[in-house]
Write a protein that binds this DNA or RNA. Sequence first.
DNA 1: CATGAATGAGGGTTCATTCAT
DNA 2: GATGAATGAACCCTCATTCAT
Lengths: 202, 202, 202, 202
Amino acid sequence: MPRVSDEYLLERQEQVLDAAIRCFAEGGFHATGMADVIRESGLSAGSVYRYYKSKDELIAAIITRLLGQLHGRLTQASAGATTPAEVIGGALGAASQTFDNTQINYARLLPQVWTEALRNPDIARQVQGSYGQIIEHLCGLAAQMQAGGTLDPQLDPRGVAHVMLSAVQGFMLQKLMLAQDIDSATYAAAASQMFAVAAQDV
Amino acid sequence: MPRVSDEYLLERQEQVLDAAIRCFAEGGFHATGMADVIRESGLSAGSVYRYYKSKDELIAAIITRLLGQLHGRLTQASAGATTPAEVIGGALGAASQTFDNTQINYARLLPQVWTEALRNPDIARQVQGSYGQIIEHLCGLAAQMQAGGTLDPQLDPRGVAHVMLSAVQGFMLQKLMLAQDIDSATYAAAASQMFAVAAQDV
Amino acid sequence: MPRVSDEYLLERQEQVLDAAIRCFAEGGFHATGMADVIRESGLSAGSVYRYYKSKDELIAAIITRLLGQLHGRLTQASAGATTPAEVIGGALGAASQTFDNTQINYARLLPQVWTEALRNPDIARQVQGSYGQIIEHLCGLAAQMQAGGTLDPQLDPRGVAHVMLSAVQGFMLQKLMLAQDIDSATYAAAASQMFAVAAQDV
Amino acid sequence: MPRVSDEYLLERQEQVLDAAIRCFAEGGFHATGMADVIRESGLSAGSVYRYYKSKDELIAAIITRLLGQLHGRLTQASAGATTPAEVIGGALGAASQTFDNTQINYARLLPQVWTEALRNPDIARQVQGSYGQIIEHLCGLAAQMQAGGTLDPQLDPRGVAHVMLSAVQGFMLQKLMLAQDIDSATYAAAASQMFAVAAQDV
DNA sequence: CATGAATGAGGGTTCATTCAT
DNA sequence: GATGAATGAACCCTCATTCAT
């Protein structure tokens, strides 16, 4: 089956990656065997290994994609926001989308990424890069809001950025851990309001 | 009718648990082998398995201890607080302690616990229980603060509790992932202030 | 009714064989993968397999060529010899040539052939045939020399042939194993002299 | 089955080594799988790997033993020899023993060792060491014989040593390759006589 | 009770070969 | 006739766990 288009090859690679994401989101990086991924992909062992040289490389690719999506959605969702409430609302909305995929619950990969980052320097670097960019983005927004009078100018913009990120991370984590106990709307409302008033005393 | 005292047995059990925590915090649940734990404990394989029937049981025991400590410290640290700033400040202070142990960085176990909870129903239940109690506790505090006029009474106390927990979880997570980039004091200051003003307009 | 000329096909076949020899002499039959041979040949997997049905067949072809060269050079080099010293000298000279190819060190294939002959009956037969012919040739020379008075007539000509072959095989082997320690000229001198005097007492 | 004697452990290790030698002598290093060795050893995979960390380590151990035996037998067999014929006779006798083991034909490992030495620097070093010692030993004997008047003093002792080694190596190789065609006694007789006369003209 | 040698299913990965294009 | 993506059996090795001593 030679002389196939680059497009074809990329599709095949996606096919493997998607299968792997489905498996890993379901069972975790370590409890899931390559045999599972291979079966799910519908390809043979050899083919899977043609596209990803090792399980680690496959995991790294998944993490790259996940962090890329996360960063993209988060920055996009809060891009034009002019008040803390809008930032938080947008970011939580984006975060919620992660759970909406009926095929794959991407969010389930997140704690695994954090765990992996603790052991794997390459992944640690990726995570640092992604979160670093997000922090920078939020930092910029905070500064703009302070300039625009919607955020207390005495707050450290960097500190604000970290706390905002916490609101998102905590939301996803608690949604994963306490599924039935946390209501997205309630959480978003509380978070938005709490951050919203942060400039009232200016 | 044991030949040795119960005290002796409990000490041995602690010895194993401590060794396991050290290993798992360092290398992760999956990358760490029982051989590592056995070596670190100074006991024999048979002995380790006398106290913990399986690796999973050992992990479960560690998680129980970790969640217990977390819950204890968090509720204790925020017990008498009467303002959001005090709650957050106390909780973050307690969270910071987790990193202070020069021997073991307990915090490194946290993402692993979250990851494990996604696959292991027993652990999921444990985590739900612990975080549920924490949420209840924070809920109670929120209600008290609303009654005391230090928190906007229009906010949903449960929502506030979740957001407060997020502040703690996000802090620990970001400290783990972005070590050099996050300053505990700056974060605490920003968080405290942001939550503090939440009743200003009342 | 091929579209391409037989000549073309033979050239392609040579191309594959040469690439394989280069690879196998370098890395050994087993450590070298077909992928290496395919890459080195500049052809595709399908093409390589068009000319040689399997790795084993390729190896067999290489061995056939190698043994043919060996037999040819050895018999030719000692063809007109009338004294033991001439035989040995000629044979060692021919053997030395094997090392002289700057591209490929054919000699490195020799121990591999011996090893392969132990497992593969087809190759064993080839090796027996080649060495058998060489022995016959040396036998004939020995008989001639005995008749000519340059070799002790009491010696068994077949025994003499085997010992002479040993001188060559040992030379090549030791040159491969002890590269820096063995000097071709010294070895040849010693061997020639030792065999040379074998008729002195007649 | 703990608290076993060191002796017991060594016996087990021997058990694995012997099984491996039997397998490798039969089928070759590469065609023989660890599964074969494991089956032959009568132990489990885990146990085999307790005693030898990898297939390579097992092969290295076998080669060490083989070269040790070879060196030991060869030097011992020719230790007190005072004439070339005695040296050759002794060495060939020792070499013949290698074939006599009804359980394992150690000689079949020899070409494999040579082959392996071409690719594996560690083994190359071992082989160089062993053969180097043998050469030194034969060198010493040659010098003694020259002093004693049983070997032409004009011969280079080192060259003589190499040629003598060739006689042994060639004998073993030809016995392996041409089994039915070579008679140990005939070969030994021819070799002994040819070398024996090497001092006649002194 | 403690010991640690033994277990063996299962892990990730490779590679000679094929055949649809 | 050439291509090279696909195949899958087989490879070497690990590791949680057990049980004879």
